[in-house]
Protein backbone atom coordinates (compact mmCIF):
# COMPACT_ATOMS: atom_id res chain seq x y z
CA UNK A 1 0.00 0.00 0.00
CA UNK A 2 1.10 3.53 -0.60
CA UNK A 3 0.94 6.04 2.22
CA UNK A 4 1.78 9.71 2.38
CA UNK A 5 3.50 10.88 5.55
CA UNK A 6 2.73 14.56 6.13
CA UNK A 7 5.22 16.30 8.39
CA UNK A 8 3.87 19.02 10.68
CA UNK A 9 6.30 21.08 12.73
CA UNK A 10 6.45 24.59 14.08
CA UNK A 11 8.46 26.10 11.24
CA UNK A 12 9.78 28.89 13.47
CA UNK A 13 12.43 26.49 14.78
CA UNK A 14 14.05 26.64 11.33
CA UNK A 15 14.46 30.43 11.41
CA UNK A 16 13.08 33.07 9.01
CA UNK A 17 12.53 31.61 5.54
CA UNK A 18 13.71 28.24 6.90
CA UNK A 19 17.33 29.28 6.56
CA UNK A 20 18.70 28.84 10.07
CA UNK A 21 21.29 26.31 11.22
CA UNK A 22 18.49 23.94 12.32
CA UNK A 23 17.54 23.63 8.66
CA UNK A 24 21.01 22.43 7.66
CA UNK A 25 20.89 19.87 10.40
CA UNK A 26 17.43 18.50 9.53
CA UNK A 27 18.14 18.35 5.80
CA UNK A 28 21.16 16.17 6.54
CA UNK A 29 19.00 13.91 8.65
CA UNK A 30 16.35 13.65 5.95
CA UNK A 31 18.96 12.71 3.36
CA UNK A 32 20.28 9.96 5.57
CA UNK A 33 16.75 8.79 6.33
CA UNK A 34 15.86 8.67 2.62
CA UNK A 35 18.93 6.53 1.94
CA UNK A 36 17.92 4.21 4.77
CA UNK A 37 14.39 3.88 3.32
CA UNK A 38 15.72 2.85 -0.08
CA UNK A 39 12.99 1.61 -2.41
CA UNK A 40 10.33 2.06 0.31
CA UNK A 41 10.48 5.78 -0.47
CA UNK A 42 8.46 6.44 -3.62
CA UNK A 43 8.71 10.21 -3.45
CA UNK A 44 8.72 13.21 -1.19
CA UNK A 45 9.94 16.76 -0.70
CA UNK A 46 10.55 19.46 1.84
CA UNK A 47 8.48 22.60 1.50
CA UNK A 48 9.44 26.26 1.72
CA UNK A 49 7.95 28.16 4.65
CA UNK A 50 4.25 29.05 4.79
CA UNK A 51 5.27 32.68 4.17
CA UNK A 52 5.70 31.59 0.55
CA UNK A 53 2.31 29.87 0.40
CA UNK A 54 -0.59 31.00 -1.77
CA UNK A 55 -4.09 29.54 -1.50
CA UNK A 56 -6.68 29.39 -4.26
CA UNK A 57 -10.08 29.08 -2.66
CA UNK A 58 -13.31 28.03 -4.45
CA UNK A 59 -16.58 29.01 -2.76
CA UNK A 60 -19.90 28.60 -4.55
CA UNK A 61 -18.06 28.37 -7.85
CA UNK A 62 -16.20 31.64 -7.23
CA UNK A 63 -12.44 31.49 -6.99
CA UNK A 64 -10.31 33.82 -4.90
CA UNK A 65 -6.60 33.94 -4.33
CA UNK A 66 -5.14 34.43 -0.85
CA UNK A 67 -1.75 34.97 0.67
CA UNK A 68 -0.68 32.25 3.11
CA UNK A 69 -1.40 28.65 3.98
CA UNK A 70 -4.82 26.97 4.06
CA UNK A 71 -5.07 26.93 7.86
CA UNK A 72 -3.38 28.93 10.59
CA UNK A 73 -2.09 26.35 13.05
CA UNK A 74 0.70 25.98 15.59
CA UNK A 75 2.33 23.34 13.42
CA UNK A 76 2.53 23.70 9.66
CA UNK A 77 2.90 21.23 6.83
CA UNK A 78 6.63 21.32 6.13
CA UNK A 79 7.22 18.33 3.90
CA UNK A 80 6.10 14.87 2.96
CA UNK A 81 7.19 11.37 2.06
CA UNK A 82 5.35 8.98 -0.22
CA UNK A 83 6.15 5.41 0.82
CA UNK A 84 5.18 1.93 -0.31
CA UNK A 85 4.85 -0.56 2.57
CA UNK A 86 2.70 -3.64 3.29
CA UNK A 87 0.43 -2.14 5.97
CA UNK A 88 -0.30 0.60 8.48
CA UNK A 89 1.93 -0.90 11.17
CA UNK A 90 4.93 -0.66 8.87
CA UNK A 91 3.95 2.90 7.94
CA UNK A 92 3.74 3.78 11.66
CA UNK A 93 7.19 2.28 12.22
CA UNK A 94 8.58 4.46 9.40
CA UNK A 95 6.80 7.56 10.75
CA UNK A 96 8.27 6.96 14.21
CA UNK A 97 11.79 7.05 12.77
CA UNK A 98 11.19 10.10 10.61
CA UNK A 99 13.43 12.98 11.75
CA UNK A 100 11.77 16.01 13.36
CA UNK A 101 13.80 18.87 14.80
CA UNK A 102 12.02 19.08 18.13
CA UNK A 103 8.28 18.55 18.48
CA UNK A 104 6.12 17.60 15.55
CA UNK A 105 3.36 15.37 14.17
CA UNK A 106 3.41 12.98 11.25
CA UNK A 107 0.01 12.36 9.69
CA UNK A 108 -0.23 9.02 7.88
CA UNK A 109 -2.76 8.79 5.05
CA UNK A 110 -3.30 5.87 2.70
CA UNK A 111 -3.27 6.93 -0.94
CA UNK A 112 -6.46 6.38 -2.93
CA UNK A 113 -6.44 3.69 -5.56
CA UNK A 114 -5.78 -0.02 -5.66
CA UNK A 115 -2.60 0.53 -3.59
Amino acid sequence: MQYILLIYENEEVYGPGKSGPAMQEIVGKHMAFSRELGPVRVGGAGLKSTASATTVRTTNGKQTIHDGAFAETKEQLGGFYLIDVPDLDTAIAVAKKLPVFKDGSIEIRPVLGPG
Binding site: Y3, L88, T90
Partner: peptide
Amino acid sequence: EAGIPFEVPGPDA
Protein backbone atom coordinates in the same frame (compact mmCIF):
# COMPACT_ATOMS: atom_id res chain seq x y z
CA GLU B 1 -9.04 1.58 4.50
CA ALA B 2 -6.03 2.44 6.62
CA GLY B 3 -4.49 -0.97 5.98
CA ILE B 4 -4.36 -2.16 9.60
CA PRO B 5 -2.72 -5.58 9.28
CA PHE B 6 -4.40 -8.80 10.41
CA GLU B 7 -1.40 -9.73 12.47
CA VAL B 8 -0.40 -9.98 16.08
CA PRO B 9 2.10 -7.11 16.53
CA GLY B 10 5.82 -7.85 16.45
CA PRO B 11 8.12 -7.58 19.48
CA ASP B 12 9.01 -3.89 18.85
CA ALA B 13 5.41 -2.77 19.01
